[in-house]
């Protein structure tokens, strides 16, 4: 078994209203100096050793991320 981590973030040009809400909340928390927050998704997959990188890339590209609006990165933990 191997642990594969996939991180998904909105593309830079796509508005992230949730990230903006977090920036606003940080100000109310009394923390200043944080100018921007981009919220994303973090997936941890336990996979058989036989599951190769191409397969992981395919599942990330077709299900975990929507390539129209999101970028993803893959690493083996």
């Amino acid at each position: 078994m191997a642990r594969v981590v996939v991180d998904v973030v909105l593309k830079p040009e796509i508005l992230d209203p949730q990230g903006q809400a977090i920036v606003g909340a940080l100000g109310r928390l009394g923390i200043h100096g944080v100018h921007d927050v981009r919220q994303g998704k973090h997936f941890e997959l336990d996979v058989d050793d036989a599951v190769d990188d191409a397969t992981v890339a395919r599942l990330a590209d077709t299900l975990l991320a929507n390539p129209v609006i999101e970028n993803f990165s893959i690493r083996r933990a």
């Binding site: 909105l10 796509i14 508005l15 209203p17 949730q18 903006q20 809400a21 929507n66 129209v68 609006i69």
Partner: peptide, 17 residues
Amino acid sequence: LCEAHLLPGALIRNDSR
């Protein structure tokens, strides 16, 4: 329909939050 690629583009959270 957008997720199924029958239509182009995507729908994201309202800008008004």
